[in-house]
Amino acid sequence: MTDAEIIDRLKADLGGKIVELTHPAPRRLFLKAAPGDLLAVTGTLRDKYGVVFLSTITGVDKGETFEIIYHFSTPEQDFNLRTELPRARPHVESISSLIPGAVLYERELQDMFGIVVDHIPDARRLVLSDDWPEGQYPLRKDWKHERPVEVIPGGES
């Protein structure tokens, strides 16, 4: 199936749910959906297009909103599904019921951007340490690193 055919099929299947569909390079499709439609779109992709593999989930801080991109791929095509969440209330539904392997990336998203993933089966921290202060999300643009004063036992300072 060529890229153009897939685009036509996607438009027919998901017409209303896709806000935007771009095709910047061969084999790369970027879809945009509202946060509420995420689960439905993923479900359709999985059932009708054989999308079972999630490479990762990227978060991007765009100031007023957070953009998150799910990078799916099949042997023929890459689907990048994006959605935008308001910064004030960053909630998104977990897709781990459809793709169990997504949990790891959703945990990473929670750690790094403070996006709350609803109904995630395992909400513990993944990459940040246990004593990391609450409310600090390193990959947000307004977060700046301040090196804490290091206390070395037996050291001079």
């Binding site: 990762t56 990227t58 978060g59 991007v60 392997g101 949990v103």
Partner: peptide, 22 residues
């Protein structure tokens, strides 16, 4: 993701090992 400057807006790295942990 590029914003037109000489620095990236966002670089996301997904290494294969992470994908294999589950």
């Amino acid at each position: 993701k590029s914003n037109g400057t000489d620095k990236p807006e966002r670089l996301k790295v997904r290494a294969p090992t992470l994908a294999n942990y589950p």
